[in-house]
Design a protein around this nucleic acid. Structure first.
Lengths: 207, 207
DNA sequence: TTAACAATGTGAAATAATTAACATTTTTCT
DNA sequence: AGAAAAATGTTAATTATTTCACATTGTTAA
């Protein structure tokens, strides 16, 4: 059970969101093929993932929705919750901040940062905005462990370094510029341009 | 050369962006380990990807930056260019539209759509905004082949269906809700919440 | 009661992606 | 000139992920 594949972690997060909707609708049990349909993957993959986390459903009834939600929570959430910050409160930063501000999950955005003085001191979706020079102080004060970068690409390396020095443990880089961090920092990069180019490629070749 | 791995396609897109910067700085040649450093992957992987597209560098000098840029373009771009639309011009939609509006690449955003009448008729980063009811007409008129969805999750399935019916060939879904499309439509889904939960998981377990 | 069905759980096979290992070759240095 | 160094290109090995195939077992219906 210990070493779950990265892909399984991603899917568990997605299953949980789907399951929460099902739970809200009053569903008590769910079959692997129902989950599979929602996520458009195969039922086997669903069962394998669930197997990997050691849960076992009821033959012929499927999985108990509530139990599965709770178990996935035990696996992927941190008991105490984790604080996150968003650096760069442009369009993308606001989109992400907005996504999270309402939800009461184990992940909460504890601060946002920007260079622009006109933004500093304001609140975005109820979250305080600080100047990036305050990154070291605020990250320590508010026990922030994860940074989300939504700054212009050219600023990414400098911001990444600041965040790492400030003691961040994980970094989610949404800028188009790859950054380097020490090995003990978990880094996830995502690049919208690449994704779109990929879609374009497969549209082109699959026809 | 025909069937490139998905992961290779993604990396080629990234190599190209890095190479364009290098080219702009006047670099003529580049080594696999230099590209690798920028993307923080291994030099072998870079060489393998480049091998797969049939390019061959110069021993001891590395790869010709310009040639490699052009070849990657031949592989992943469509000769004539591809038109794209963004549906949902909230924060995320604006972020994406803004990313692309300046650049003159083979991908161009030809329209954006929203439900809100206050947005319809305006321009966002120089792109016309239409009402979603105009999706069928505009997609045909402007020969749009790819849709990017940045609407609230609950609207995603309906919008996806509209886009598919309108004749879209590829769909990039940035809502947290998975959608179903026919097999011949290339679908790419990305979910920021999942990414953040994944980072949180590895931060939690790697310590 | 018993046969047919429909679901889970999982070992084993297949596929996809990465990494190791190394032959080859150009350049540089002595 | 010859040896050492530094790079590419590629086969083979490894690792990661997905899928197949099927044993198992509640449930339903005849």
């Amino acid at each position: 059970m210990k070493n779950l594949p990265h892909k399984t972690i991603e899917r568990l997060s997605q299953y949980r969101r789907a399951l929460l909707l099902c739970h809200a609708k009053g569903m008590v049990h769910i079959y692997s093929h129902e989950i599979a349909k929602i996520q458009h993957i195969t039922p086997v993959q669903v069962r394998r993932d669930i197997m990997l986390i050691g849960y076992t459903g009821t033959l012929r009834k499927g999985y108990n929705v509530k139990e599965l939600i709770d178990l996935i929570g035990q696996i992927i959430d941190s008991e105490e919750g984790i604080n996150v910050c968003v650096v760069g409160i442009g369009n993308l930063g606001r989109a992400i901040t907005n996504y999270f501000s309402g939800k009461r999950t184990k992940l909460s955005i504890a601060a946002v940062f920007d260079v622009e003085l006109s933004k500093v001191g304001k609140k975005y979706y109820r979250i305080d905005c600080f100047h990036i020079d305050d990154i070291p102080r605020i990250i320590k004060e508010r026990k922030i462990e994860i940074g989300i970068m939504t700054v212009p690409g050219e600023d990414a390396p400098a911001i990444a370094e600041m965040l790492v020095k400030a003691g961040i443990k994980g970094l989610l880089n949404y800028t188009p510029k790859p950054v380097n961090v020490p090995d003990d920092i978990y880094l996830e990069e995502y690049d919208m341009i690449t994704s779109l180019e990929k879609v374009a490629f497969f549209v082109k070749t699959h026809h």
